[in-house]
């Protein structure tokens, strides 16, 4: 699993960052264990180091969580037969890497039985790796160079772009992507990354609006149901 390999340096960097942002060892590991999201953790540490207020930190975490909202929305059709208590575990373990691997297999039809066990195995393995690396990072102290200098932030962006390109199957999706992109660039001055939320709303509305318009013109088209992500 290539994603496991990328989790190791990120986890170590997280442990280093946590201590250097002024948190105790206990708080650094606690935060990593509670959020189970590298991005939320990194941004959280950066904001804490900046002395940001707690509403700003919580709101930013929530905005980053929007991404997760889209993962779980995409997974809805696949969890219908999974019992409710399992969904709690799936929800907690649903991180970027697990989602990408799982959706790939679900779409190929390579994963039909014991879906939740596959999820649990993958997210459990990543969780344990991440926490171990956090502890390693904390013990290394500040010897590790920072994430941005090494360009470790690009792989996640590349995953998003690949998802976009694969989902781009018709002009309505292109309209949603284009309008969201333009909105986010125009709205970059808004506080707390609210531009991302605004752009997501605009993009979804434009896509849905385009589809509504085509449906009215050609009622037959309402049968089509393409996967967008």
């Amino acid at each position: 699993m290539p994603f496991l390999a990328s989790a190791i340096p990120m986890g170590i960097a997280g442990g280093v960052l946590g201590l250097s942002s002024g948190l105790s060892e206990f708080a650094t590991l606690g935060l990593a264990m509670a959020v189970n999201s590298g991005t939320a953790q990194f941004v959280g540490f950066a904001l804490i180091a900046d002395g940001a207020s707690w509403p700003a930190i919580i709101l930013t975490t929530l905005i980053l969580g929007l991404r997760m909202l889209l993962y779980s929305t995409i997974l809805i059709p696949y969890v219908k037969e999974v019992p409710q208590r399992w969904r709690v575990v799936l929800g907690f373990g649903l991180i970027d890497e697990v989602f990408f691997v799982a959706i790939d297999r679900l779409r190929n039809g390579r994963l039909t039985h014991h879906k939740h066990l596959f999820f649990l195995g993958a997210s459990g393995l990543l969780y344990v790796t991440w926490m171990t690396c956090t502890v390693i990072g904390m013990s290394l102290g500040s010897a590790v160079p920072d994430v941005e200098k090494l360009g470790l932030d690009f792989p996640v962006t590349a995953m998003f772009i690949a998802m976009l390109a694969i989902g781009l199957t018709n002009w309505r999706v292109a309209a949603a992507i284009g309008s969201a992109g333009v909105t986010v660039m125009l709205a970059h001055g808004l506080p707390y990354n609210l531009g991302v939320v605004l752009a997501a709303i605009v993009g979804a509305a434009v896509g849905a609006g385009c589809e509504l318009a085509t449906r009215k013109n050609a009622p037959k088209a309402s049968k089509e149901k393409e996967n967008v992500a």
Binding site: A176, I177, H188, G203, E211
Partner: peptide, 25 residues
Amino acid sequence: AVVEMLLKYTPPAVLAALVFPAVLT
């Protein structure tokens, strides 16, 4: 149907909103 349509276009919209700044700025 409208909610389903909005949900269908939310993933590409959110992805675009995250990707554009990450790549351009």
